[in-house]
Design a protein around this nucleic acid. Structure first.
Ligand SMILES: Nc1ccn([C@H]2C[C@H](O)[C@@H](COP(=O)(O)OP(=O)(O)OP(=O)(O)O)O2)c(=O)n1
Ligand SMILES: [Mg+2]
Ligand SMILES: [Mg+2]
Ligand SMILES: [Mg+2]
Length: 902
DNA sequence: TACATACAC
DNA sequence: TATGGTGTATGTA
């Protein structure tokens, strides 16, 4: 409060533009007042005030700190910053041409396309509770994304709110991406409606192209897009022949993009006039609006303010145009061809043109030598425009000089306010205050600020990195009954588990998020010793966290308005593969050269060199594996004496001893230790196998559909990982030792410790609990779903079975009925397993897995999975020294987005 | 590792 | 009546 505006700061800070008021919109005062009136007294508002106060405190502290800085401090910092700046300067690369493309009022535009009656009427997309976005007409009234619909309605009673159609947005997005890919196959999608392209190579290629490759038919009518086009009445189809570079033009623009509460008044966009302003003499930028050159939808012909001429003239300046007005606006077949030039500017125009042709939606673009600048540029001439920043230092400097820091991606509401308290508003200020900043902010922030102030950003597009977390959350009307809270929590876990499993992820950290009815948010997290993905284990953890929260306010009820569950700390792709596929390796041990080498390489376990020899039988392979295992860990002391008659079902002749010399009878036969197991159901059987394999039971067992021996993790994993960081053996927690565990197992548990060395009592932490009886971390007890015991989830997609010969399947022995046959192929074996399991569950052993594991350098170039390939490669790309705001939301699923507004 | 904050769309 | 959902980065303890 002391620092900036007075009361109700978060509302009053709105720096609204003045605007044609009246019918055309509202002015800033009115908007502020309406929003304030609508918010005042609400729990939401109270919480906003609270948060704002915290920020103010932070500012206060910061200023205090600033006062105490000595001259020497600052001088020293100045020196360091100058060095850093020089460093950054040296790293500046002006040789790339980056384009940022962003669709205009995206969701709203899609809706408008399909319901043209909203073209000129204020409209928002979402619900009365929350809007995802609004069209440009509505924006004149202050209606914004992330604003609740009911407040939007107060701002603009005429507002129509349309529900979300996420599938449509996805479809459109895909269409756009198809175009973008032609200019840069490695373009980076930042969200459904925007992407970065590096067109440097395209520009070179383009030079050599025949003209017709830059020529496009202008077919049926296009939406003239956003309301900006409202002013452009006359359809002009053009033949653009631009080979020359245009004169630069400087255009200053517009309101900061902000939270709706602080949003400046959206102008009715005087872009047209502005774009005709005389160009800056320093030729800093090129900018150009091309909507005029694009088509309009038919109904636009009726309205027509005519400030267009000047714009046309401007357009003509850089584009020799042939204007061809339609006489009949309803003649859909009218066409003209449009040829675009060779420059980056022309490329962006071409892209936008093609997007509009294809989708009937408009996009804006920014062209600059790096991502940071391109992003700012794309916003500058919105909607339906583009802004072009020349790749030289002078131009950039000029551009940055007046640029409000808030315009930069990554600088948001709070940072803006913090910096404003230091007298920093523009990027130039940011540069000038660098010494102070260095003293008050972290090195990371300081560096970031400095880079921004210099207009230096990433020049290499990094492929979206692998996801780090996945979550589901939901807002609801107050819930306070514990039963309901728990059941909601379970539902969330259910949903999350499904999606996690869809991506074959497993994570170790579960985070519960809650928001109480006062909008106070808390997160509570727990990290497990092993990665999980099942509903049951997620819920077991989340439930415990929730329990703590409920108890913490007891006897008051925990009154929530939101709950969410997140999974993170995913196991590394390779590690996961090891886990999931180790049974493959296990079964193939001694049989596949690659597997052997893999084993040797990863585990330093001596592996018999059997390449080229007769394939081993299943038993031989199992035995070989066991010997390796035993040699390494000296755990499996039992010997396999089992000799199973071919074709025998439920073989009762198998003899196997566990490490205490006990013999078990009846039930399923473990394919690893050959003990017959008395486990009730597959659930326990699976757990036994996992244990037998020596791996921490990592829960796949709960998965719904299916199963695969390929998922039994274990033997290999335990061998592979026991000496690797991240999966070390743990010392048994105090109070427990192996005998405790053994005693426990004596009590009827069918599992036994298989990991670690029994002599020194080292054992995997997870072994301290018995998974079979579901006392692991007490996680499973709540699931109560033992009957659903399934074999582990397959991580293997059906297509990976496409080539059953890739890994030979000689005489496999069914781990369930124990019959041994010469299977025709993998599929036959799997089919047998299905029948045998009689669970309606597909059990698949796949063939590629082994190969995949063995040649980690080879990315899965498989059929349609280009993405997995790129994800892999991503890690090889070195990070640019300069930090850019990283954001990879493309991982959202439709489901999730739907969730967003339901 | 846990948690809160800030930011993006 | 009613103020979202998903994901990443960073600072701090
Ligand atoms: N807080 C937000 C912001 C955006 N979106 C959705 C709706 C938008 O249509 C889409 C794209 O976001 P943009 O920031 O690009 O905004 P628009 O495309 O709607 O408008 P603009 O013309 O300013 O780009 O993402 C959302 O759901 N919630
Ligand atoms: Mg957009
Ligand atoms: Mg966008
Ligand atoms: Mg910003």
């Amino acid at each position: 409060m002391e620092t900036t505006e007075g009361t109700s700061g978060f509302l009053s800070r709105m720096a609204l533009n003045d605007n044609k008021a009246g019918m055309e919109g509202l002015d800033k005062e009115k908007i502020n007042k309406i929003i304030l009136d609508a918010s005042k007294g609400s729990r939401f508002y109270e919480n906003e005030l609270k948060k704002e106060e915290q920020v103010n405190q932070r500012i206060k502290k910061m200023l205090l700190q600033k006062e105490q800085l000595t001259k020497q401090d600052v001088e020293r910092a100045q020196k360091q910053m100058d060095e850093m700046a020089a460093d950054l300067e040296r790293s500046r690369d002006l040789n790339r041409t980056i384009v940022h493309v962003d669709m205009d009022a995206f969701f709203a535009a899609v809706e408008t396309r399909d319901r043209p009656e909203f073209t000129h009427r204020p409209m928002g997309v979402g619900s009365l509770s929350m809007l995802s976005t609004s069209n440009y007409v509505a924006r004149r009234f202050g209606v914004r994304a992330a604003m609740p619909g009911f407040i939007a309605k107060r701002l603009c009673p005429e507002l129509t709110i349309l529900p979300l159609n996420f599938k449509k947005y996805e479809a459109v997005s895909k269409e756009v991406c198809e175009i973008l890919a032609e200019y840069d196959p490695r373009f980076v999608r930042m969200s459904l409606d925007e992407a970065y392209l590096d067109i440097t190579q395209h520009l070179k290629d383009r030079e050599t192209w025949p003209k017709d490759r830059r020529t496009f038919a202008s077919g049926s009518f296009l939406s003239r897009g956003c309301e900006k086009g409202t002013e452009s009445a006359h359809l002009k189809v053009v033949e653009v022949k631009l080979e020359q570079e245009r004169e630069g033009e400087m255009h200053d623009d517009t309101e900061p993009v902000q939270n709706y509460m602080k949003q400046p008044m959206p102008t009715a966009k005087g872009n047209v006039e502005e774009s005709c302003m005389e160009s800056n003499s320093e030729h800093i930028t090129n900018e150009h609006e091309s909507q005029v050159s694009l088509n309009c939808s038919p109904e636009l012909f009726d309205d027509l303010p005519t400030q267009e001429e000047s714009s046309c003239a401007e357009l003509g300046h850089d584009s020799p145009l042939t204007l061809d007005c339609f006489s009949d606006p309803h003649q859909k077949a009218a066409t003209a061809s449009v040829t675009f030039g060779l420059s980056a500017h022309e490329v962006a125009k071409e892209i936008r043109f093609r997007i509009e042709q294809k989708t009937r939606l408009t996009a804006s673009a920014g062209i600059a030598p790096n991502m940071l600048l391109a992003k700012v540029c794309s916003d500058r001439k919105k909607p339906n425009g583009q802004f072009d920043l020349l790749p030289n230092k002078a131009a950039i400097h000029q551009f940055m000089k007046e640029l409000p820091i808030r315009k930069v991606s990554g600088i948001g509401k709070v940072t803006e306010k913090l910096l404003k308290a230091l007298g920093i508003t523009t990027c130039q200020d940011l540069f000038e205050q660098r010494a102070i900043l260095a003293m008050l902010f972290s090195e990371t922030s300081t560096r970031h600020f400095l880079a921004i102030s210099l207009g230096i950003g990433a020049t290499r597009l990094e492929r979206n990195s692998e996801r780090k977390s996945m979550s589901t959350e939901r807002t609801f009307s107050e819930i306070r009954k514990p039963e309901e809270l728990y059941s909601l929590c379970q539902k969330l876990c259910h949903d999350l588990a499904r999606e996690v499993q869809e991506e074959s992820l497993q994570g170790r950290t579960i985070t519960l998020k809650i928001k109480n009815i006062n909008f106070e948010v808390k997160t509570r997290a727990v990290s497990l010793p092993s990665a999980v993905s099942s509903e049951e284990l997620l819920f077991a953890a989340a439930r415990d966290l929730l329990k703590i929260e409920i108890e913490s306010v007891h006897p008051q009820p925990l009154r929530l308005r939101l709950m969410g569950v997140r999974l993170s700390s995913f196991v590394d792709r390779m590690d996961q593969k090891k886990q999931q596929k180790s049974i493959d390796v296990f079964l193939n041990i001694g049989n596949k050269e690659e597997c052997c080498s893999f084993l040797q390489q990863e585990t330093r376990v001596p592996c018999p060199q059997r390449a080229g020899q007769t394939p081993l039988s299943f038993f031989q392979r199992v035995e070989a594996a066991r010997k390796n295992e035993a040699a390494q860990h000296d755990v499996f002391t039992s010997t396999c004496t089992g000799q199973v008659p071919d074709g025998s079902l439920q073989s009762s002749t198998v003899q196997a001893k566990n490490n205490r010399g006990e013999t078990k009878e009846s039930g399923l036969v473990c394919p690893v230790c050959f003990q017959k197991q008395n486990c009730k159901g597959l659930y326990n059987f699976n757990m036994h196998i996992d244990h037998c394999l020596g791996l921490i039971y990592s829960e796949d067992v709960h998965s719904k559909h299916l199963s695969s021996p390929a998922c039994y993790s274990g033997l290999i994993n335990s061998v592979c990982c026991s000496n690797q960081s991240g999966n070390q053996n743990h010392i048994l927690p105090s109070g427990k030792d192996l005998s405790t565990l053994e005693a426990h197992q004596e009590e009827g548990c069918c599992t036994f410790a298989s990991q670690g060395n029994s002599t020194n009592k080292e054992v995997s932490e997870s072994d301290t609990c018995c998974h079979s009886c579901q006392q692991t971390v007490s996680l499973c007890s709540c699931a109560g779903d033992e009957s659903a015991g399934l074999l582990p989830d397959t991580i293997v997609s059906p297509e990976s079975l496409a080539d059953p010969t890739a890994c030979e399947v000689p005489s496999m022995t069914c781990p369930v009925c124990h019959c041994s046959q010469l299977w025709v192929d993998l599929q036959a074996f799997n089919t047998h397993l299905d029948v045998c399991l009689n669970q309606g569950i597909i059990s698949k052993l796949t063939s590629h897995e082994c190969t995949d594991m063995c040649s980690p350098g080879v990315s899965g170039t498989s059929t349609k999975a280009g993405e997995k390939t790129s994800l892999r490669r991503n890690k090889l790309v070195e990070k640019p020294p300069m930090k850019k705001a990283k954001y990879s939301p493309s991982k959202n699923t439709i489901d999730k987005f739907f969730n967003a507004q339901v």
